[in-house]
């Protein structure tokens, strides 16, 4: 496996971030982030808490605003607000730590809402699409239930189906398994692995090192708002170069 660089032929990178800066008050949470992710790459973002990895993930669809710099999806710069931003967000699927399924809508409605309201799909087509996606993530029988009636693992799989229903170019995962009971982690990771194998461009903030090795093409290690290491999972786990990464890995791998 090789890490493709920005000079990857004529096609623009799927995600490109240039000189991105962000502060929370006086805290400098993203320092001069430069990142190009070619289409089909699965990028794992790892780092201690407070390192800015979630913020990095959330800036890609502008759920967090940035102070300066440029972010582009598939060559299109991210607008700051308005309809253009909403349209661009529709092409970027997002899966949250706390699932965030629409609590007052059924599972089916959760998945069809975007296709109907944003993609202007007919209800019938959207229902068919949703059923096939729910089938795929293994919860077709639950389609008429409300989110609160499902387990955490099931809810997270619905959240993935909801994002996929928009036929996104990129999928962002912000610690998708951190809020799950241990026995439910694998059912979610399995779906993510199959997505990765199908060639989806993915940015995954996670602490699941097994997943990083199995499905990741590239690992970013972040600390204090900077990307400290950028390499293949193999390189990162066997031969980290920075002391921060060595220190971090020694803390999580010695159990």
């Amino acid at each position: 496996m090789t890490v493709a660089g920005p000079s990857d032929g004529a096609r623009p990178p799927m995600i490109s971030m240039h000189d991105v800066q962000k502060h929370f008050g006086t805290l400098h949470v993203l320092k001069n982030i430069r990142l190009d992710v070619p289409g089909g790459q699965v990028v794992i973002v790892i780092g201690p808490s407070g390192s800015g990895k979630s913020t990095l993930c959330r800036t890609i669809n502008r759920l967090e605003s940035i102070d300066s710099g440029d972010i582009a999806i598939d060559g299109v710069p991210l607008p700051a607000e308005g309809k253009g931003l909403a349209q661009l967000r529709a092409d970027v699927g997002m899966v949250f730590q706390s699932f965030n399924l629409f609590a007052h809508k059924t599972i089916l409605q959760n998945v069809t809402l975007g296709p109907i309201k944003v993609r202007k799909m007919s209800k019938k087509d959207a229902d068919e699409l949703a059923d096939s996606l729910l089938q795929r993530v293994g919860i077709a029988e639950q389609r008429d239930k409300l989110p609160a009636q499902l387990s955490g693992g099931q809810q997270q799989r619905v959240a993935i189906a909801r994002a996929l229903a928009m036929k996104p170019k990129v999928m962002l995962f912000d610690e998708p398994t951190s809020a799950l009971d241990p026995e439910m982690v694998n059912e979610v990771l399995d779906v993510m692995v199959s997505l990765a194998r199908e060639g989806m461009t993915m940015v995954v903030v996670t602490h699941e090192m097994g997943f990083a090795r199995k499905a990741g093409d590239r690992v970013l290690f972040m600390a204090d708002g900077e990307i400290v290491e950028d390499g293949t999972p193999q390189e990162f786990f066997t031969n980290p170069t920075s002391n921060r990464a060595k220190d971090f890995l020694s803390k999580i791998l010695t159990h």
Partner: peptide, 25 residues
């Protein structure tokens, strides 16, 4: 919860849709 509006924005809904379809109901 703020996550409800975030999820709605992430799907690509506009401000009016986020408010009218997800938050206000």
């Amino acid at each position: 919860p703020p996550g409800q509006a975030e999820a709605a924005r992430a799907v690509g809904l506009t401000f009016t849709q986020v408010l009218g379809i997800v938050v206000l109901p």
